[in-house]
Nucleic acid binder design. Structure first.
Lengths: 218, 218
DNA sequence: GTAATGTTTTACCAATCGGTCAAATTATCG
DNA sequence: CGATAATTTGACCGATTGGTAAAACATTAC
């Protein structure tokens, strides 16, 4: 008598690990390109090179695949923000945060789109993660930035909106890639747009946040 | 013998105008919240308060609804960029462009999400609009910005990435609204976040783009 | 080897999808 | 009014959806 679902077994077999890996990889492709509702189990199964019932042997529902994928990707995704260091030089920290986020937009666009799709459609599956871990992390880093403002190391500004603007500008190059390509046209076809973007954004934020007379006075 | 489709009649009746209006309004609700593939005709029909066959009497396919909606919204959506004036004062023009875009994110979030969904998923229905009218408009305005840079009125920077960064930062407040709310939490619950964002972004871009010694020299 | 367990496939299901059809109903016009 | 055209409805269709059942097949442990 066989126990029907892989989840029931405590010890995971080699095959289980391999197949789950393949499924999550395929699911990232599909979910990031079409969102949760727009994706089908069949698409994921085909991308993973297995039959639908076979896939459902490893993940019982579409939601289970999605949840496993989110859980797996979220931690890595927040890595750059976590690396934001209170002790470091403000200018260098912000600059390297921008660079890291931009590198992630370039190297992991599917992950970016996965979250973008999810949030855009009201975050029905990750509301808790946003209000919990994410908020706490941002609150913590906002406090760091606020301290920098207090000590006059950067211009007076709202730390939350500073973080939002870095998220928005960097992730834009992953999430809205087709638009960026369409507007830039053939002449900027290569990956050069990421270097141009890095140059622009670093300049914008560095000059934009440099402390000015009025700040230290107040 | 009645001609089966509303589209066949040359003269549009009062009822046609009213119903098409209601359908497009409902479609904006549904498409902006779930994307094209994630939306169903039934959802739109229910939101419009009519039966599915009745809706299909006015628009023959789901794509036709979507197309009509895009056509209708796109022009208005580009209005702020079109208003960008070469003759005006650079600082004032950029500042008011940011303000206008932010107002649109606040007042027309559904329109913003409609396009965001579309572009995120590869822009399958608006590729032509991106590569055509949008690109041309951006090219034109980029030239204006480039002229400002040449005459030393603003800092040396890539005009395309400047435009992208304004799009990204302002639309962020519409497209990623749930995340912004989740992170800001209850204490910033009201609409105050838009004013805070406006203050932050104006400061960022004004200071970030102010011409510096090195620019005028080069 | 063989028995137990783990994996895959085939066939299937009910619900939902986009869309059609013809008949019934309502508005418009002379 | 009556006739004609415009609108609405309910019943329906084939395809696709998420998911299941059970048997066939493969692997592992002893």
């Amino acid at each position: 008598m066989t126990i029907p679902r892989a989840a029931k077994t405590l010890r995971r077999t080699r095959i289980q690990e391999e197949k789950e890996e393949r499924i999550l990889e395929a699911a990232l492709d599909v979910f990031s390109a079409a969102g949760f509702r727009g994706s089908t189990i069949d698409q994921i199964a085909e991308a993973a090179g297995m039959s639908k019932p076979n896939l459902l042997y490893y993940f019982r529902t579409k939601e289970a695949i999605h949840r496993a994928l989110i859980d797996r990707v979220l931690f890595t995704w927040l890595e750059p923000l976590r690396a934001f260091d209170a002790e470091g030089n403000p200018e260098a920290e912000i600059r390297s945060y921008i660079r890291r986020k931009l590198e992630m937009a370039r190297d992991f666009p599917r992950e970016s789109r996965l979250f973008a799709n999810e949030i855009l459609q009201g975050a029905p599956h990750i509301e808790d993660e946003l209000k919990g871990p994410l908020k706490e992390l941002v609150d913590e880093k906002a406090e760091v930035i606020r301290a920098w403002v207090r000590t006059g190391k950067i211009a007076k500004c709202d730390p939350y909106h500073l973080i939002f603007s870095i998220w928005a500008t960097t992730q834009h190059y992953a999430d809205f890639d087709v638009q960026v390509r369409a507007v830039l046209g053939q002449n900027h076809a290569g990956e050069g747009r990421f270097e141009d973007a890095a140059r622009f954004l670093e300049q914008l934020f560095m000059n934009g946040l440099r402390p000015r007379q009025a700040d230290t006075a107040a």
